[in-house]
Amino acid sequence: MKNKSITPRWEHFEHEADIGIRGIAPTLEQAFEQAAIAMTATVTHLDSVSTSKVISIYCEAPDTELLLVSWLNELIYEMSAQGVLFNRFEVVIDDDTLSAMAYGEAVDRQKHHPAVEIKGATFTELRVYQQADDTWVAQCVIDV
């Protein structure tokens, strides 16, 4: 029983030193997309980020949990090396590989007032699982 009626969403959860990010959605791919949106929300207001720039992402990992961390770390790398913020994602997962398009724009300190710089996605509270209603949850703590 696929619960397609649930709208994909994201949330933050508590970690003593840092921030937990969680995506909840009908599909695994959408849960990964939502987790990435939750990550941007730790840095800035999502509404302030336009989608004028697109970057393609590819990563692989032996299981879905490591794949989530790898996906987020690829984004963190692009955010840091290219100086961009993302707010929309299109993720395709095929077994142990992930390919995606990430949409966003260059960081503008006046416009985005970025609060923190993310150091990395961690294995702490790392979980990717399907709930009883079939919706997917993808979560971990990020080090800021």
Partner: peptide, 30 residues
């Protein structure tokens, strides 16, 4: 800065993936 963060990120993944090969039982992947 970014250099340290990236090294930490990359080796964490590599070490988590190769722990079994070295017969290391990780109570926590981190």
């Amino acid at each position: 800065r970014g250099l340290g963060h990236q090294i930490g990120t990359e080796f964490l993944k590599e070490m988590a993936m190769s722990a079994a090969q070295y017969n290391i039982v990780l109570p926590d992947r981190e």
